[in-house]
Amino acid sequence: MNELIVYILLGVVSVVSALGLLFSRNAVYAALFLVLNFGVAAAFYLLMNAPFLAVIQISVYAGAIMVLFVFVIMLLGAERLPMADAGARIKASRFVVIAGAAVLVVSVVYALLTQGSGAAAPYASDPLAIGMMLFTKYAFPFEAVSVLLLAAMVGAVVLTTRDAK
């Protein structure tokens, strides 16, 4: 029961920070709300028996990716968002989206309340087990992802370099 209180508190912080991202008028504040959301996700990973992923979440997401976001926002000087940004022009589609989101949440909660038993099964999830699995069962996806990262790196450099002719 005590554990559930921790989960609910973290869940409230997570949803509030996501809503802050959704309604923020300043792009830098939105980025900081997203960092908070990623930090809460890392806490959930720790609670869910995934310590390696928690560290990766902080170092890759909250570190590298969000630094890139904040860097680009400040480089472009685009942190001020216009007031009409929240979508006054697209009212009809917004209601459709809200209805669809409500259907998704209600159906998931209904499915969980009616048939989810969800008892945890014990398993090894230390970095050793992850490394063993990564280099045996998932060796091919691992190599494919390395090629993807190389392509992304070359692509980013090519896209942002001005012609030096």
């Binding site: 559930l4 989960y7 997570s14 869910m48 917004r94 989206v97 998704l104 949440v105 969800g118 945890a120």
Partner: peptide, 21 residues
Amino acid sequence: MNPINFLVALSAILFSIGVLG
């Protein structure tokens, strides 16, 4: 409601907020 169900529901909520965004 146990923690696993809670996390799946939370993930649906966060996903919906992302779609709205």
